[in-house]
Write a protein that binds this DNA or RNA. Structure first.
Lengths: 232, 232
DNA sequence: GCAATAGTGTCTTTAAGACATTATCTT
DNA sequence: AAGATAATGTCTTAAAGACACTATTGC
């Protein structure tokens, strides 16, 4: 069974992507419906095997481009963790490296090979859906990572277009954390935290109220002090 | 070259451990001096290949027990991240999952196979030592993870014996962060943060001053609000 | 005018930082 | 008593939370 002559055991190395965006003010994840065994017909995270000549990041980028047709989009991609239970894939020994990808207003996915369907799911609607493999855990870990990173980084802006209002930025926090924030206090925090947003001195088209000022992402990456979720 | 009949490419999966403890008030890491190629003679993180029937966590525990003779010690082990550059190991395609292990007063290591020497190094003394593979990056990432987690978790207690004083706890922060903290303010923070420490109502043997009260770890895992490093 | 949304101001509370003071031990 | 370390207290400042108020649009 083992590879002859290899000085060490080998395993398949997969990358699985938890691609998150906001759709209709809901944190949503891209899932594909499998058309091949194992778990044919089940919904799963887009993923693929790392090939011989690509590193983990390249494999993640390839899955993003091929399976999610998001190759040219500005998305933030970061590694979450690696899953290595011996029985996690019936095809054999497979270790999976999970990545989280965040992007603004991502398009409807294109279907790839071995895929019956592909669509965005609101994370909160996924309690009834049974995901393939150990993907429920991968998804939960990535969502928690995203929620946690909004606290102490400027990552929320990656869910927004290049120009945005403070209300939109607050909407990101409210959608990802699933709770309302005080508009006034959030405005103070966003505009007075060094490096978070840059005032563009222009206004968005009004939507039934006072027109909102436009901002773009600042050059800071850390929020200091952090913007903490209410004490659990 | 590829394994015949395998439906996906395969790679070696290694686990490498950044085992941290405090020795003489210095954050220290366990390194082994390699006796085999590649990098024979160079210092490296203890590690090994994940075998056919064990998962990543079991492989990490095995390396901890075998290469560091720390099998029965109470240590905190957590995964940091996975490194997959195509050229990171001259023996072939190897992906390495890095773990961080934290423990109190860990013993001198025993030498294992393929190991010329094994010893603790103060992290601050490692600037002159060239580590094998991409281990400088693994080490830096794990040390930063440890430093960051002291801010918002109760993890500092894992560097201490079961019973400890507030001064010792402060010493953990000072050693890991490399900067002094105000003793009074730290005392207030440690004793008044829910779930951090539990007062044992006894006193440690005095060491030339007022005897310090003894505490043990509380049942909390999160520090809320966090204990932040001074604003960078 | 009114409703709606954006943005500012004020008051209170929490908690950190600086640092003085008191407590309890050894020598 | 002097010196050392532990523990508490006080004052100031930073920043969050609650919430009132003003600003600017469409209707």
């Amino acid at each position: 069974m083992s590879t002859s002559g290899s000085p060490f055991p080998r395993a398949g190395v997969a990358v699985d992507l938890v691609i998150l965006t906001l759709r209709e003010h809901k944190l949503s994840v891209l899932l594909i419906q499998r058309d091949d065994e194992p778990y044919s017909g089940a919904w799963a995270l887009p993923g693929g095997f790392m090939s011989k000549r690509e590193d983990l990041t390249e494999a993640a980028d390839r899955v993003l481009a091929d399976e999610a047709s998001l190759g040219d989009r500005a998305v933030h991609v970061e590694q979450v963790r690696t899953y290595g239970a011996t029985d996690r894939d019936p095809r054999g020994r497979v270790v999976s490296v999970a990545f989280m990808a965040l992007g603004a207003d991502l398009p409807e996915p294109r279907r790839g090979e071995g895929v019956a369907d592909a669509r965005w799911w609101a994370v909160e609607d996924l309690t009834e859906v049974t995901l393939a493999f150990d993907h429920p855990v991968l998804l939960a870990d990535a969502v928690e990572r995203a929620r946690a990173k909004l606290e102490y980084t400027t990552l929320a802006v990656t869910f927004l277009p290049e120009e945005f209002t403070i209300s939109q930025l607050r909407g990101v926090y409210e959608s990802v954390w699933g709770r309302p924030l005080d508009a006034g206090n959030f405005h103070r925090k966003a505009t007075r935290t060094e490096g978070f947003v840059v005032d563009l001195e222009t206004h968005a088209a009004p939507t039934g109220g006072r027109p909102a000022r436009l901002y773009r992402a600042g050059d800071g990456t850390r929020l200091n002090p952090p913007l903490l979720r209410a004490g659990d």
